[in-house]
Design a protein around this nucleic acid. Structure first.
Lengths: 223, 223
DNA sequence: TGGACGATGACATTTCGATGACACGGACGG
DNA sequence: CCGTCCGTGTCATCGAAATGTCATCGTCCA
């Protein structure tokens, strides 16, 4: 899951991405509406975190504008203006959630995860595939009850695959959703991550490679 | 199925063809309208993906021009100009579909496949010929319910034949639609692929050779 | 009966995924 | 502040699968 954070406050520019990354999200940062527009132009995000007030304007106006054109990516606004009127504005103008400063980064993380999930295959806090259980809230994965120590990237990739069981997912799709803008689409990062995942899962063929297409988890009915 | 991608952005020049190829499409690349015109003159394509803005002009003007001459190949425009007015323009001037940047390459692939299919046998998700079923979305082929492991080329050739049941398809036509520009029309790649297909289909005469003409699938009513 | 054409199988080449070794950088603890 | 560990990305290499090439054989028809 990939998130764009649009924030001009220097403290939050550090804290917010850090918190989201530790939740296995890929995070890009933009410091203005113009920069955000550019990033949204180039990449596919699963969620956007907008500060209300940015150097080049009020982000609500921007989001409203995009919504009118059918843009559907979930948005969470951060704001210090905590009046009820503003809160209403946030929702009316295309915001999906709202967080009033000061806020706990943990809370932000939880809300962003929820928004990402909402956009995807219907909010499931615990994902299952055969005897693999992913607790997306705690960021824990168990295989047959045994806790596997997955890293953030491994978690992100497995989550993406597991929410798309039975579908083949291309490398570029994985890069697009599990890595941030710094990722090189030509490298074999995905391969490397898949390999580490397979090792930790202790069953290499749980994740199947589809030659020329990508990877997939096959819905195994009986087994 | 063969697709022409017209794109001047270097990142997309890599990513888009890669994604389409992984969907078993043969892809050629042009970097300008002039190059595209040349390619369209020389080869037959099942679909064209046009970037809106190219170094030598707006591709919409070009497509409109070609449409006026009766040109009917499906076109998908990629654009960053996401105003409603532009969207309308895209359709009015001969575009069959429209994708606003940023887009997920998976989405692009899905739309292109859909356009290719629409142009052919009118959007059939599952193609059938006798007891052969092709799931074009999933890229799977079954014979009497049994999954056959077809490779990308085999799939492409069978798909082309099956959507033209009862018609004889020449080798050059197959080369043109299932291979990219690098293919040598004099070689017997087609023969080799047909042979492998026959083997996997387990019935050699399912694909019939027409001496001096090419190959065809015959609509067998009783059998 | 000879020649053109398709079928076939062996083999060469290319492509792609798997793998392990290593490099880099940030986090953390001493 | 330094050293170590861990997560992550990169690279070279290997091997298997896919694809392309070639020589040969069979067959159909003039």
């Amino acid at each position: 899951m990939r998130v764009l954070v649009v924030e001009d406050n220097e403290d939050l520019q550090v804290a917010v991405p850090a918190a989201l990354r530790s939740a296995a999200l890929a995070v890009d940062l933009a410091v203005s509406i113009a920069a955000a527009d550019e990033a949204l132009f180039v990449n596919a995000y699963d969620c956007v975190v907008f500060d209300r007030l940015l150097p080049d304007g009020d982000s609500i106006r921007y989001v409203r504008h995009r919504r009118e054109q059918g843009w559907a990516v979930p948005v969470l606004f951060l704001t210090g203006l905590d009046t009820l009127a503003d809160r209403v504005d946030g929702f009316e103008y295309g915001g999906d959630d709202y967080l009033v400063k000061p806020f706990a980064v943990a809370e932000l993380t939880a809300r962003v995860l929820s928004l990402c999930r909402r956009a995807g295959t219907g909010r499931t806090p615990v994902l299952r595939y055969q005897d693999v259980e992913m607790d997306t809230g705690r960021r824990e994965v168990r295989r047959g009850g045994v806790l596997l120590g997955l890293t953030a990237k491994e978690f992100a990739v497995l989550e993406y695959l597991i929410t798309r069981t039975d579908r083949t997912v291309s490398r570029s799709e994985l890069i697009e959703h599990c890595w941030d803008a710094a990722a090189d689409p030509m490298s074999n990062v995905v391969d490397a991550t898949i390999r580490r995942l397979r090792t930790k899962l202790r069953t290499p063929d749980l994740i199947e490679a589809v030659r020329g297409q990508g990877y997939r988890l096959v819905r195994a009915d009986g087994a």
